[in-house]
Design a protein around this nucleic acid. Structure first.
Length: 258
RNA sequence: GUGGCUACAUU
């Protein structure tokens, strides 16, 4: 019911259950989190504890996802304290969720601290840390992490490239961006529409409109985001006639502006 | 039966 968008049905089912275990509580918490109802999710966690149900790793992975803006940093920290009591901080999914929480709450140094203390790191842990650095203007660190993960024997995936491209999205990083582009080609990912659009964004923000256009024009299945990206690239460089021209063209080609 | 990163505006 939650996945189908019916909060009402999910809630009444949950309430009517004669017995609730950790999985039913987790499921209900997830419904609230995915709906963006962070405070309600956290309230449910309080009730769960009050009912004497012991949370597990999944409980915290879900709840940490609810703490995704600086106003919820204190809640995220409380969860961090709680899960330490159970010894869940060494769990890789919990650790990665903690990093993500700190990153989205604006506390990138804390995210780094969790990352440095992880006993095991998989591709998602590296991706989250790279994204964290990219989001907080730490592009040198992001690129260093990209190198380090490979020295550590972890292969970059599509998300890794998306994240590291964001770290190359300014005019001081053109050569890094070119290098990442080469690696994307080597990994045969350049035909992916999401990757191709991320490359258009990167070149646009670097001021390389020629490269951005070349990639954009080769996308066979252009969607609204691809068009928006190319329009934004022109605007970024002050090419207003080109931007407006593309705005007309996208509509001729059936893309509805949002 | 429940759990982590996923391209476009502004920053």
């Amino acid at each position: 019911y939650g996945r189908c968008g019916s909060m009402t049905h999910a809630c009444s089912m949950f309430k009517e259950l004669p017995k609730r275990d950790v999985i039913t509580w987790n499921s209900m918490i997830t419904v609230y989190v995915k709906k963006g109802l962070s405070r309600d999710a956290l309230k449910l966690y309080g009730e769960m504890l009050h009912d004497g149900i012991k949370p597990d790793e999944a409980t915290y992975v879900n709840l940490l996802d609810a703490c995704s803006s600086p106003t919820l940093l204190s809640e995220g920290k409380k969860l961090h304290d709680d899960l330490k009591v159970w010894g869940f901080d060494s769990h890789i999914l919990v650790g990665t969720s903690l990093m993500n929480m700190y990153s989205r709450c604006g506390s990138w140094q804390q995210a780094r601290d969790v990352f440095d203390n992880l006993t095991r790191r998989d591709v998602v842990s590296w991706n989250v840390m790279i994204d964290c650095c990219a989001q907080h203007q730490q592009s040198t660190d992001a690129l260093q992490l990209f190198t380090d993960m490979q020295s550590d024997g972890v292969f970059p995936n599509k998300v890794t490239f998306l994240n590291v491209l964001q770290a190359c999205s300014d005019d001081t990083r053109v050569s890094d961006g070119n290098h990442i582009h080469d690696l994307i080609v080597i990994n045969s990912l350049e035909s992916d529409v999401v990757i191709a659009t991320a490359l258009v964004t990167m070149y646009g923000k670097c001021g390389c409109l020629g490269d951005a256009w070349k990639l954009f024009s080769m996308i066979p299945d252009k969607n609204l985001v691809s068009w928006n990206t190319m329009v934004a690239g022109y605007i970024h460089e002050g090419c207003m006639e080109m931007a407006l021209g593309l705005f007309e063209q996208m509509q001729l080609e059936g893309a509805m502006p949002n």
